[in-house]
């Protein structure tokens, strides 16, 4: 049962990036048994993220779909989410499908369209608290950058 739940929950997609799973984004921390219950620990990208309730609902539904009856979903404050938890596959999908890139540790970022690495920061916060907005003067597209 534990494995079935783990597999099902890992496939839950993010409400804002429908092609990317919560596992790929590093939101799924662990799935374990505690007595009769199955516990699912999730790591929020931002503690005030408005999508958390939807993610919780989707995770519960996925676990119940494969037959789990007693499930508890918890958002943990430890570990802390960082963009380093996003898998390579997810990075490719985010860049290709959504034109969203991840800020490197040194603060730099690269345009997913033309590879230009001289992006101009236009706003520290974009349409969500986890993204900033840059402008690529090479291909003249706005690029959203996942913040650290």
């Amino acid at each position: 049962m534990l494995k079935a739940v783990r597999d099902a929950v890992a496939k839950v997609t993010d409400p804002e990036y429908p092609e990317v799973t919560i596992e790929q984004l590093g939101i799924l921390e662990r799935v374990f048994s505690s007595g009769e219950s199955i516990c699912i620990d999730l790591v929020p990208t931002r503690s005030g993220c408005p999508a958390l309730e939807i993610i919780r609902t989707d995770v519960l539904a996925a676990a119940k779909d494969v037959g789990a009856t007693s499930v508890s979903v918890k958002f943990c404050s430890d570990p802390v989410w960082t963009p380093d938890r996003i898998t390579e596959d997810a990075r490719r999908i985010l860049a290709r499908e959504f034109f969203v890139v991840i800020r490197n540790v040194d603060g730099s970022s690269k345009c997913p369209m033309c590879e230009n690495s001289e992006l101009e920061n236009r706003s520290d916060v974009g349409s969500t608290p986890c993204r900033s907005v840059s402008w690529c003067a090479e291909c003249r597209n706005p690029i959203e950058v996942i913040r650290r």
Binding site: G48, P50, A51, R122, S123, S127, T128, V133, W135
Partner: peptide, 24 residues
């Protein structure tokens, strides 16, 4: 509180979309 949080997030979404659109 939950619905206030959603209203806050939607406000940020809409203004964020306007920002991107005004850029292009």
């Amino acid at each position: 509180l939950h619905r206030k949080l959603t209203a806050l997030a939607k406000t940020q979404d809409e203004i964020g979309h306007a920002h991107l659109l005004y850029m292009i």
